[in-house]
């Protein structure tokens, strides 16, 4: 496969996955805002969220105060914010457009139709529908695109690079989501058991893990178990362990002469998660564990780019 084609496929699926996870992240915050709490607490939550995805400075360049409404606007339909859902889906569509001949017509049309709908979607519309409905829509379009990949794309390099992009992105996003929520809850000025329960269950809902948690643990929600579920569970499709396992598998399918070291590193990371214990995760603190993980995923992304994708220098 052409390196440039692989590059576009990889980034197309990364952007779709990112848009989906942004919708999930904003959705959980939105739900948490519904809880009785002070304005300062709500502000603290949104600041932490913007910070976790690296957009706090960009936000402050445009807005002075951190209010739920402004952040939602900034993160959903703001065309000038390169990190907004709008921008992600625009990039996804641009990447798909550049390789539309490699995609099945269904996958191309879904990506294109999503973009056409989003382009005409207004803030007024979102006010009428409610933000939750918008997030549902973004998630649903992502599901459709993934389903179409599964149901129609040939199982050659094109599928491999699409899936590789999905799992590299998801690993990063899940880690950031867990990190920001864990810190937010544990750094709360006042402990409040009922409130914490609500926070954790909202987090589980947002990664579609609430029912899974109940099935797996049949017990009350504790931070340790939530972390275990989202970090180490091999059968939880949004967990770090699952993402790295998948990334390793897809990477092996496209392996080339240059990619040995990259394979080794993903394999190592996947094994550490597969055989790791939750005590080890918490030993140096969850935050430090997740920060290290995000750095390693970032390194993985760079290595994939230099092994397979558009060479930075030619």
């Amino acid at each position: 496969m052409l390196s440039r084609t692989a590059d576009h496929l990889y980034w197309m699926s990364r952007y779709i996955e990112r848009a989906e996870n942004l919708a999930r992240l904003l959705d959980v915050n939105n739900r948490m805002s519904l809880m009785p709490q002070s304005e300062r607490e709500v502000e603290r939550m949104w600041i932490a969220t913007l910070d976790s995805i690296g957009l706090l400075d960009a936000y402050h360049q445009r807005h002075e105060d951190v209010t739920p409404n402004d952040v939602l606007r900034f993160m959903t339909l703001d065309r000038d914010n390169p990190g907004s859902i709008y921008s992600c889906l625009r990039s996804a569509r641009e990447n798909a457009h550049a390789v539309r001949g490699t995609l099945t017509s269904e996958l191309w049309e879904i990506t294109n139709a999503t973009w056409l709908k989003l382009r005409n979607y207004s803030l007024d519309q979102m006010d009428v529908d409610g933000a939750e409905q918008f997030f549902e829509w973004v998630k649903m379009r992502s599901h459709q695109s993934r389903g179409c990949t599964f149901g129609t794309m040939m199982r050659d390099d094109s599928t491999s690079f699409l899936r590789l992009g999905t799992f590299v992105e998801r690993a990063d996003n899940t880690a950031r989501l867990l990190d920001v929520k864990y810190r937010f809850i544990s750094e709360a000025p006042r402990r409040d058991e009922a409130g914490e329960y609500y926070q954790w269950s909202a987090l589980l809902h947002c990664v579609s893990a609430f029912e899974i948690y109940r099935r797996v643990y049949r017990d009350q929600i504790t931070p340790t178990r939530v972390a275990e579920l989202l970090v180490l569970r091999q059968d939880m499709p949004r967990s770090l362990a699952y993402c790295m396992d998948e990334a390793y598998g897809w990477l092996q399918r496209v392996a080339n002469q240059r990619s040995r070291e990259t394979e080794r590193r993903v394999g190592e990371l996947a094994s550490q998660l597969r055989f790791g214990r939750v005590e080890d995760v918490f030993k140096g603190g969850l935050h430090s564990f997740l920060t290290t993980f995000i750095t390693r995923v970032n390194d993985l992304g760079n290595r994939i780019a230099s092994d397979f994708l558009v060479p930075i220098t030619s």
Binding site: M1, L2, S3, D157, F161, V254, N256, Q257, P311
Partner: peptide, 10 residues
Amino acid sequence: GQVFMRTTQG
């Protein structure tokens, strides 16, 4: 004197 394309396999 020959033309090549860059692919993921070289």
